[in-house]
Design a protein around this nucleic acid. Sequence first.
DNA 1: TCTGGGGTCCTAGGACCC
DNA 2: TCTGGGGTCCTAGGACCC
Length: 422
Amino acid sequence: MFAEQMNEVVFHVDVNSAYLAWEAVDRLQHGSPVDLRNLTAVIGGDEASRHGIVLAKSGPAKKYGILTGETLYAARQRCPGLIVIPPRYHLYMQCSSALIDILRQYSPVVQQYSIDEAFISCYLPAKDPQEGVKTAHRLKEQVKQELGFTVNVGIGPNKLLAKMASEFEKPDKVHTLFHHEMSDKMWPLPIDELFFVGRATARKLRGYGIYTIGALAALDPALVHAWLKKPGLLIWQYANGKDYSQVTEQGPPIKSIGNSNTIAFDVTDRDTAHQILLALTETAAMRLRAIDQCTRVVAVAIRSHELFTYRHQRKVQTPLDSTSLIWHQACQLFDESWKGEPIRHLGVHLSELCGNDFYQLSIFDQHNEKLSRLDQTIDLLRSRFGNSSVFRGCFAHSPIRPLMGGVLQEQEEEYPMMSSQL
DNA sequence: TCTGGGGTCCTAGGACCC
DNA sequence: TCTGGGGTCCTAGGACCC
C-alpha cells in the first residue's frame, strides 16, 4: 500500500479577521440578529485605561482604511460611527482550540503558530497535485460548518510558501504556491508583502531600487548581505522560496517570559512603581515555575508618558525562580534607571532561562528554600482556587491589581505563545 | 483619554582578558 | 612608542512576527 509515491505538502491555516469573526459567531449563537462581520466594527481595547487600539477589524471596516494596531481615535476619524467591541480572550482561546481539534483530523503534525494560525503537514499522492487543493477545501468547509468562521488555507512545499499563499485573496479561500508558481504569484508582489520584510527593511530596499519580491530574488545574495546583514540573507532565501524549517508539533522551546502593562494612570512615585512591578513579577514568575525553569537575566522596561521606552537588565549570579527575589532585582533595576518622569507602562522580562534542577539541589541556602516552598504553595493554591485566592497584603487597600500582565490569567499556560520564527 | 502585549533574533559597542 | 588585536561577556537597542 506504500507503493504509490507520496509527497509532503504544508498547509497554512489562517482565520479571517480572527477576533472579530469569533466575536460575531458567538453573538449569533447567543441569538444576536446581526453579524458583526457585515458591519463597520472592530475589536478594540479599553480607551479609559489607555489600551485603545484596534485588535481586529471587519471587512467593511477595512474598506475605510482602518488598520490593526492603530488607535481607536484614528479609526473613528476614518469611520465615524464605528462599532467598537471589547476583547474576550477566553472565548478566542476556545475558538482557537476548537480549530486545532479539527486540524488534527487532517494531519498528525499540527503546529500552532499563533492564536489564529497553524501549519499542518500532509502526505498526498505525488501524481495528483489537485488532491491537496481538494483536501484544503474540505478542511475549510468543515471549519465553516462546525465552527461558523472562515479560514484561508495556503498550500506549499514548505512553511514559508504556504504562509505566503494564505495571504493571497481573502476571505474563505484556498491558494497554492509551489516553486514553479513563484514567478507568477509571488515575484510581482511589492517587497513589503514578503514575510520578514517590515517597514524598516522595505524602506531600505526601496532606497536601493528594489520594489518587488522578484527584484529581491534576482539579486546577488552577497549584495543583500552587505546591505542588510544576516536578515538580508534570510529574506533573499524567502524571496526565492527557500525554507527548510520543519512543521513540529510543539514549536520551539520558550526562551523568555515577559509581563508588561500600560497603567490606567501615570505613575509618579517609586512605591507605586514597585508595587506594579510586584504584580507583574507575580505572573511572570508563576509562568516560569510552571515550566520548571529559572531565569538568569532580569529586565525592567519603562515607557514614559511621552512614549519613550527604555529598559535596564542585569545578569544575576544565581538563577532565580522566586517571586520575591526576582521582584527585588526588578526594583533595583527600576531605581537605577528611572529618570523620574511620569510612567505610562512598566514591564518585567525574564530571559536566559535554565532548568531548575541545579537550583533545587542547592538547598543549603535556607532562605531560598523557604521562599521556594512559599512560592510553590501559593502556585498550588492559585491553580486550585483561582488566581485571586492568594495575594500579598500590600495590595489589600490598593487600587493596583495584585496580578498584572496576564490577560489570560487562569488558562494561559495551556496555550502556546506566539513566535516570530517559522 | 492617541499610540497593547506577547515573543525571537541580531548587532553595536564597551569592558575585560590574554 | 604612534593608541595591536582577537575572543568573550554583557547591555542596550532595533528589527521582525502575531
